[in-house]
Simulated scan of single mutants.
Amino acid sequence: MTKTVLHGNQCATIISVVKQYKRAVILRFGRVRSVSPAGPGIIWIIPCTDTVIIIDLRTQSFNVLPQEILTKDLVTVTVDAVVYFHVLKPLNCLLHVQSHKHATELLAVTILRNILGQYTLSDLLTNRESISQAVRKEIDNGTVEWGVEVERVEIKDVILPYELQKALAAEAEGTRIAKAKIIEAEGEIKAAENLRDASKIIMQKPQTILLRYLQSLNYIASQQKTTILFPFPIDIPDHQK
Rank of each mutant, 00 (worst) to 15 (best):
E68Y: 14
E68I: 09
I69V: 05
L70D: 09
L70I: 10
T71I: 13
T71Y: 01
T71D: 00
K72F: 03
K72I: 00
D73L: 10
D73F: 10
L74C: 07
V75E: 03
V75I: 12
T76A: 14
V77R: 08
T78G: 00
V79W: 04
D80Q: 15
V83S: 15
Y84F: 13
Y84N: 13
F85C: 09
V87L: 11
V87Q: 04
L88C: 09
K89I: 00
K89L: 01
P90V: 11
P90E: 05
P90Y: 07
P90L: 09
L91M: 12
L91P: 07
N92G: 11
L94T: 01
L94V: 08
L95Y: 09
H96A: 05
H96Y: 11
S99G: 10
H100N: 08
K101V: 07
K101G: 04
H102F: 05
H102W: 04
T104L: 14
T104V: 09
T104A: 15
E105G: 06
E105N: 08
L106Q: 06
L107W: 02
A108E: 03
V109S: 07
T110G: 02
I111C: 10
L112P: 01
L112V: 00
R113N: 11
R113M: 05
N114F: 04
I115D: 03
I115F: 00
L116D: 02
L116W: 03
G117R: 06
G117P: 02
Q118R: 14
Y119G: 06
T120D: 12
T120N: 10
T120H: 11
T120Q: 09
S122I: 05
D123V: 07
D123C: 07
D123S: 13
L125Q: 14
L125E: 13
L125F: 02
T126S: 15
N127C: 04
R128G: 12
E129S: 10
E129D: 05
S130V: 08
I131V: 09
I131D: 04
S132E: 14
S132H: 02
S132M: 09
Q133D: 03
V135D: 00
V135R: 03
V135S: 02
R136A: 13
K137D: 07
I139P: 00
I139W: 01
I139K: 01
D140C: 14
D140R: 13
D140T: 08
N141E: 07
N141H: 12
G142H: 11
G142I: 00
V144I: 08
W146F: 09
G147T: 04
V148F: 04
E149F: 06
E149K: 13
E149N: 08
V150T: 11
R152Q: 04
R152V: 00
E154R: 14
I155S: 01
K156T: 03
D157V: 06
D157I: 03
I159Y: 07
L160K: 08
P161H: 08
Y162F: 00
Y162K: 10
K166L: 10
A167F: 07
A167N: 10
L168E: 03
A169F: 08
A172G: 05
A172C: 06
A172Q: 14
E173A: 15
T175L: 15
T175D: 07
T175A: 15
I177D: 11
A178V: 13
A178M: 06
A178P: 00
A178Q: 12
K179G: 01
A180D: 09
K181L: 08
K181Y: 05
K181V: 02
K181M: 06
I183P: 00
I183R: 00
I183K: 09
E184H: 09
E184Q: 15
E184W: 04
